[in-house]
Structures are given as C-alpha cells and as structure tokens.
Design a protein around this nucleic acid. Structure first.
Length: 457
RNA sequence: GGCGGCGUGGCCGAGUGGUUAGGCAGAGGCCUGCAAAGCCUUGUACCCCGGUUCGAAUCCGGGCGCCGCCUCCA
C-alpha cells in the first residue's frame, strides 16, 4: 500500500482505506475566473500521477474535484467586463478543461460545482448557527473558530499562536480575526441565494466540506491540494466538519510551490506563468516530466530553461519508442497491469509506495531505457524488448506517454524527404545534404533510418 | 513575534552514515558517406565552523544565506 505524507501528523504513513480496494479522494479544484496558471498545472499533475499510480496497483479510485463557480473574483471580473458571472465561469471552465486535456490529466470521477450545492451549504450553515458554533454579523455568517476543537491542526500551530500573527483587519465584528465567512450577505448586483439567515452567497471554505462529504461520505480517505490551501482553506474546511462532529478526511496531502525564476513572473516573454501559454509553447508532456523530476512536496523552478531541459529528456523517451514501436503500451489512458521486468516493476512500486518518489522512479525508467538500447545494440533482442516495454509501460503508469512518430508532417517536408532519399540512393550526397539543411531550416530534425529519411521536430 | 522548509558537481534535481542517482549540457571514442539516434568512457559536488564516529554531504550544536505560512491564492 502506498504511504503518503500526511499534513495533519507531519509524518509519512500508509494511506488507510475506508473501503478495502477503493480510494475515495477529493482534490480542491480551481476558481474559474482566469486562465489556469503553472500552479494549477502542478497540482493537477501531481494528483493525476497519484491517481494513476493507485489505479496501476489495482485499486479503484473515486476522484472528486470541484469547480468554484461563484466567488469574489468571478463577480469582480463579471462586473468589470459587463458580463454575467455564469458567462465568466463558463468561459474559464472551458479553458481549464482544454488545458487539462492537453496535460493528459484524467477527468475527475465527479466534478461538483459550488452553485449546484448551495442548498446543502445553507443547511449546514443553519446547523452551525443552531448549535451556536457560528454567529451572524452585519455582513454575513462566521464560524466561531474558538469553539472548534483542535483548530490549527493543519497549520501546525495552536489557535493562540495563529491569532498572534494574524493581521488586524479594520473595524470588524468578528470575534477573532481567524473567524471566517460561511455566508456573505447579498450585495446589490451580485448573485444571491435565499437562506433563512438572509439572502446571500456561500463563502469559499464552505463549499468543499459540503461537496466532499456529499459525494464521498464521512471518513473519506484523502484530501489534497496545493500547499497554499493547507491554511486557511483546508483548516477551515476541517473546522466546519469537526464543529459538526463529522468524520472528515483521514489523510491530507499537499504539493509544493511552483517558482518562476527569480524574476517577476510578469509578462516578460519567455517567462510563462499562464499554463495556457506554456502549453502553447512547449510539449505539454515536458511539464509532466518536469513535475515528476522533483518530489511533489519540493518547490519546482519553472523557467524556459528547465522546460527545454525536460523537453530534451522527453526526446530520449521518444527515441526509445521509435526504436521499439511494438513496445509501446497498447494501453491508454491508464496502465493497469504490466508485463515486463518483474524486478524493475517491483522496484518502481517500492519507490512510489514511499511517498511517491517519482524522481527515483524516473531514474529507474531511464536506466531501463539505457538497458534496452544497449541490449539492442548487442543483439539481445528479447532482453531489449522487455526492457523497452517495461520502461514505456512504467512511464505510461505515471501518465507519461512516449511518441513513436511525428503526427503532422506537412506535405512540403515529405516531398523534400523523398527527394533526399532519392539523392542518397544515387550517392548524390551534395544534394542530400542540401536537402537536409533545407529541412533543418524548417525546424525538422533529420534522421536516416533503414526505411529512409525520418523527420521529427 | 510564532510555525515550517531549503542551501548538492556547468544547469536541473535525487539521496543514504562507508559503495555510480538520473536528466540536460560539455569532452573523447565507436557507429554513420557526413549527420542524427544509440552505445562506451569522462567530470573538482555536497553553504561555513565546531562536535559525535573507525568513517558524515548524510547525525548533533552554532553561524550565514534563501524561501514559505500566520491575509486571497493550486
């Protein structure tokens, strides 16, 4: 069984399953008011890899990830652009899934939208008010964090300590600065929902508790997200559940930050911060490789250089796929079972079981790549095939697909390649080299193979 | 102020008390008409100062530097 770092205990411990053989996990999704950024890309990749690995080991996985489609940012954007909140949310949710598809992130099993669960949220807030765990102010309903046992568990600090550092907010009716809005009273021009405690809309921290419990039930196995959600978002989700005596997530996983090379991650070209830009400019698989190359809890540096580096690493994987096309897993999208080098597969599982040691798993795969190439060069065909299919299969298990051929070679390039083959057949190397230069100028890498000139980007 | 993380060879990035991480880039060689791909060989690395130890980059203490959270954020 896989062990993962648990933020609640600060230790790596086995992921205990409520229902044997089945994992119930919830990963906080995006608020859809802008294009996805690199941080979104990282957390979706990290948890996609985890999910795929769990599937690889034969477990069933229910993966719930929400879309926050009502919140301050969406409202602000809608008002600024004179559009409805629904329009804004809809547009950016579409862009979100486009990016996810490009990254090869599997769709969640369920995708709850905040606006679909407002009734349930109202119900929960009512209960919190009834039990005097929440209170009303002139602008909404707040949770009384002082009444929550163990508040600060995820933050790793007791309430008093958190309070001491809390920034003072201007003339607030909150009992303590840490109390947070469960409900925000209606303001003119904003979308609102009816509630016994007054028209308004839900606060951010409320939706995920309600939706995770509604879809996964009490005591679900794992709750995940970016490190920045640890506090206060996840702390506050947990606080609501705890206040109501509900058994919440049993394990908490958080992935590390994305850093963008010192320099202001601003518009300066080549310093992409938007995931959409990155995916336009590079092979989407490069980002997955980059993410896998460091441990999920460590910060990663994303710069044009590190992306290029990853892209070149990808080339090694693709070269293998080209040499061993029949070793490509016939599997997409998910690798369940893999025939291959049993020792390597066992080694891979040992690494992944230990809090997802993907950098070492990747090293193992690259070692297999070398082994496959060496074996082929030495004429040990069977060994080569096995190493290659193991390497490609394990890469596939982490969602990294190797490509054996270039998909879209334009007609013009193909014509030049054919002319070059003719020239080479005639030993007219001056002409063939000129044609190669021409192709390279068009951005192609030209490679001679037994079947003639091959092109790739 | 409180809590937490990090500092590895040209770059990225793992790691454990004593044995090659891996990738990229570089150098030499094999292969090739020449290349590309592949293969072989190759590189002074572990912030500083003490300490523990037969032996520490890895453990302990101190120092320096960098970063994050305590506010919205993946």
């Amino acid at each position: 069984m896989v062990s993962l770092h648990d933020t609640a205990t600060g230790t790596i411990r086995p992921l205990a399953l409520r229902d044997p053989g089945k994992v119930a996990m919830y990963v906080c999704g995006p608020t859809v008011y802008d294009l996805p950024h690199l941080g979104h890309g990282r957390f979706t990749l990290v948890f996609d890899v985890l999910r795929r690995y769990l599937l690889f080991t034969g477990l069933g996985v229910t993966y719930v990830s929400n879309i926050t489609d009502i919140d301050d940012n969406i409202i602000a954007k809608a008002q600024r652009e004179g559009r409805s909140e629904e329009e804004v949310a809809h547009e950016f949710e579409e862009r979100w899934w486009e990016a996810m598809d490009a990254l090869g992130v599997l769709r969640p099993t369920a995708i709850p939208h905040a606006t679909e669960f407002v009734d349930a949220m109202v119900e929960m807030i009512s209960e919190l008010l009834e039990k005097d765990l929440a209170y009303r102010t002139s602008d909404g309903v707040y949770l009384d964090t002082a009444k929550v046992n163990g508040y600060g568990l995820l933050a790793g600090q007791p309430l008093e300590s958190l309070r001491a550092g809390a920034r003072v907010e201007g003339n607030d009716e909150k009992h303590t600065p840490l109390d947070f809005a469960l409900w925000k009273n209606a303001k003119p021009g904003e979308p609102t929902w009816p509630a016994p405690f007054g028209e308004g809309r839900p606060g951010w921290h409320t939706e995920c508790v309600v939706m995770s419990l509604a879809l996964l039930g009490e005591g679900f196995d794992l709750h995940g997200g970016g490190l920045d959600l640890k506090f206060p978002h996840h702390e506050n989700e947990r606080a609501q559940a705890v206040a109501l005596g509900k058994d919440f997530a049993h394990h908490w996983a958080h992935n590390g930050w994305v850093m963008v090379g010192g320099e202001k991650m601003s518009k300066s070209l080549n310093n992409f911060t938007s995931l959409t830009d990155l995916l336009d400019q590079a092979d989407p698989r490069a980002y997955r490789l980059l993410v896998l190359r460091s441990h999920y809890r460590a910060p990663i540096e994303v710069t044009p250089d590190t992306i290029d580096d990853a892209q070149r690493g990808l080339a090694r994987l693709d070269s293998l796929a080209r040499r061993f096309p029949q070793a490509l897993p016939t599997m997409p999208p998910v690798v369940h079972e893999l025939d291959g080098d049993a020792d390597a597969i066992a080694g891979f599982r040992t690494l992944m079981d230990d809090d997802l040691q993907t950098p070492q798993a990747l090293a193992l795969i690259f070692d297999l790549i070398s082994a496959a190439n060496t074996a082929l060069d030495e004429g040990r065909g069977e060994d080569a095939q096995q190493a290659a299919s193991t390497a490609l299969g394990l890469a596939g298990a982490m969602g990294l697909e190797a490509k054996s051929e270039e998909s879209d070679i334009d007609e013009g390039a193909l014509v030049l390649a054919r002319q070059r083959d003719e020239a080479r057949a005639n030993k007219d190397f001056a002409t063939s080299d000129a044609l190669r230069d021409q192709l390279q100028a068009l951005g192609w890498t030209v490679e001679d193979t037994p079947s003639g000139t091959e092109l790739r980007r």
